[in-house]
């Protein structure tokens, strides 16, 4: 209910703002909706959303898996932390644009280059978060697991993973938003499809309803994934905690 209300307020503000700004700069909601429906009818909307989603899924999975493994290693093994730290700082502070452009130059305007560039942008934040998680692992529970001779798998699943879950959720949450932001830039610069490509086209044609139609569809997909995937995961992994106020 509260969500619906906040959505209604958003639409109302947009409508009022469009009256002041004029159609050329900010078309009112019905115009954008019409553009959205036209794109959906032709199938273009779903094709481009699908292409973007596929890239996001691949890059996100790759970066989370690699980032979690490297972060865990750096949090647990001192030498790994020492060796990896300078690289990590470099990656953390490297602008996304540099990575994307270099990837396209070195690997060509290919799908591999795009996905790798997006993954590399997300990787360092995942590493940093998981490293903190691995450092914060409870030594007392570790001792308990050792004394009771818990097998490796059971120890990982029941002792270590639940402690890392909040960190994984945080990395996924911040990482996903980073991926959403970067994927469009990568598409704009070097892919012939995807939401980023379409927004580039709309920008060149100054077709603002089309631009907003793609941006908002994209935002809707992000919200949907957040509500259907990310939030249930968080709720499940923290169900043992007493409810926070």
């Amino acid at each position: 209910m509260a969500r619906l209300l906040s959505f209604a307020v958003f639409v109302a503000i947009w409508w009022i703002a469009s009256l002041f700004a004029g159609d050329a700069k900010l078309p009112p909601p019905p115009a954008v909706l019409a553009a959205m429906i036209a794109e959906a009818r032709s199938g273009n909307l779903f094709f481009h959303l699908g292409a973007t989603l596929a890239r996001v899924t691949l890059a996100f999975t790759l970066a989370m898996a690699l980032g979690a493994a490297i972060g865990y290693l750096m949090g647990r093994v001192r030498l790994a932390d020492r060796l990896g730290d300078p690289w990590l700082i470099l990656l953390l502070n490297l602008p996304a644009l540099v990575v994307i452009v270099l990837a396209y130059i070195w690997a060509g305007l290919t799908e591999v280059a795009a996905i790798a560039a997006i993954a590399i942008n997300k990787l360092p934040t995942a590493i940093v978060t998981l490293r903190e998680g691995a450092r914060a692992l409870d030594a007392a529970l570790d001792e308990m697991a050792t004394v009771f001779a818990l097998p490796h798998w059971s120890r990982f699943r029941h002792v270590i993973l639940p402690q890392l879950a909040p960190y994984i959720a945080a990395a996924a949450r911040s990482g996903l938003s980073l991926v959403w932001k970067i994927v469009l830039v990568a598409e704009l610069l070097g892919r012939p499809n995807g939401v980023g490509f379409e927004i580039g086209v709309a920008f060149q044609l100054f077709d603002i309803p089309l631009l907003l139609a793609y941006s908002l569809s994209f935002a809707a997909v992000v919200l949907l994934i957040e509500t259907l995937l990310v939030q249930p995961f968080e709720a499940r992994s923290s169900r043992w905690r007493p409810r926070a106020a």
């Binding site: 004394v147 009771f148 001779a149 043992w240």
Partner: peptide, 16 residues
């Protein structure tokens, strides 16, 4: 030998 250890604090897994 199988060891059963009761620590000073219970040391239970809070999420199980």
């Amino acid at each position: 030998a199988r060891i059963g250890f009761v620590f000073q604090e219970p040391r239970l897994l809070p999420w199980r």
